[in-house]
């Protein structure tokens, strides 16, 4: 067996899975930076996947389908925004409710599609000239469908917004210290609404990539827990879009180990160990990044805390 082939295969699979995780992670980072914890990612992804599937099936246009997914994610996260920003209730529970709602709605609405076995053509890969000739990196990163390229671009855009624009500065300060931001004249509620809705829309898009790119038919449970991994990845990448890029692909790579080791016949470690690996890693990383040396600069100080104006 040629090690180059094995490595290339690992990378191709890594980019597939990693890009799905990346878009959702970026969305959740954007939301959490404003101080809102949205645990509904799994539900948003699933609802987004269904919406894009329906629209792609009807129109055959992936851009409209992706927008539909974004809109679906936005509408569901609007409920979360309303409940947790305006009504100031427990964000953890509201997020769990959004997950249940998203999965339930998708199952309910998608049933006729699943029963009639509707199928779509998956998105075609576009080969980027020159870059796709690089060994290993080329065929994996630069021979993918347009939504994967979108995920690369989003990393830069979100990083730019968060760190180089005044809106980004406002958003971060809202997440750190809302009352101070308020006293500086920043509209805390509006900022948090925007962050939650944009984040939700991105989670929807990640569902679109999942179904339009790699799993082109609708059935129940298609997101298979990826939303929760994305939530963990936010911490893994310490709320920074650039780190999220590496984090998502690192998780993607870890996820390929099981299949790779089975195909090269390495059998020392039981299959199930690899299945726990992403979760173990997340805990380890949580511990490392939570220890005081790192924490102070990373986690939005007001994450998960509703903001009420002083009377």
């Amino acid at each position: 067996m040629d090690p180059m082939i094995i490595l290339t295969t690992m990378f191709i699979l890594m980019v597939q899975e990693g890009s799905i995780l990346l878009i959702a992670t970026l969305g959740e980072i954007f939301t959490e930076r404003s101080g809102i914890l949205n645990l509904g990612v799994e539900g948003l992804m699933c609802f987004g996947a269904l919406s894009s599937f329906i629209v792609y099936y009807l129109t055959g246009n992936w851009v409209i389908a992706t927008l539909a997914a974004a809109f679906a994610g936005l509408m569901l996260s609007l409920i979360h925004a309303f409940v947790s920003i305006t009504l100031k209730v427990n964000q953890t529970v509201s997020g769990l409710a959004i997950t249940i709602l998203g999965l339930g709605l998708s199952s309910f609405i998608g049933r006729p599609l699943a029963l009639s076995r509707v199928r779509i053509e998956p998105l075609e890969s576009i080969r980027i000239p020159v870059l796709s000739e690089i060994p290993v990196i080329g065929p994996s990163f630069f021979n993918q469908n347009p939504l994967v390229y979108f995920s690369y671009v989003m990393v830069i855009i979100l990083w730019f917004i968060l760190y180089k624009t005044s809106f980004g500065l406002n958003l971060r300060s809202v997440g750190e210290n809302p009352s101070m931001a308020d006293s500086l004249g920043i509209n805390v509620f509006l900022t948090r609404y925007i962050a939650t809705l944009v984040g939700g829309a991105l989670c929807g898009v990640s569902g679109a990539l999942l179904i339009l790119g790699y799993y082109p038919s609708w059935y129940d449970g298609i997101t298979a827990g990826r939303g929760w991994i994305a939530v963990a990845l936010v911490i893994f990448s310490s709320w920074n879009p650039l780190y999220a890029f590496f984090g998502a692909y690192f998780f993607g790579l870890v996820g390929t180990l099981n299949a790779t080791f089975q195909s090269i016949g390495f059998r020392m470690i039981p299959t199930d160990f690899f299945r726990t690996l992403p979760y173990l890693l997340t805990i380890v990383v949580l511990v490392i990044f939570s220890s005081t040396r790192f924490r102070r600069r990373k986690m939005p100080a007001s994450l998960g805390k509703p903001y009420t104006r002083e009377l």
Partner: peptide
């Protein structure tokens, strides 16, 4: 043979199938 240790695992099936084609 690639084992998934699950009856429903589209992600694992995708990886297993791709690895079988590419690596084996």
């Amino acid at each position: 043979v690639q084992w998934l240790n699950a009856w429903f695992d589209p992600e694992g099936a995708n990886k297993a199938a791709t690895s079988l084609v590419e690596n084996n």
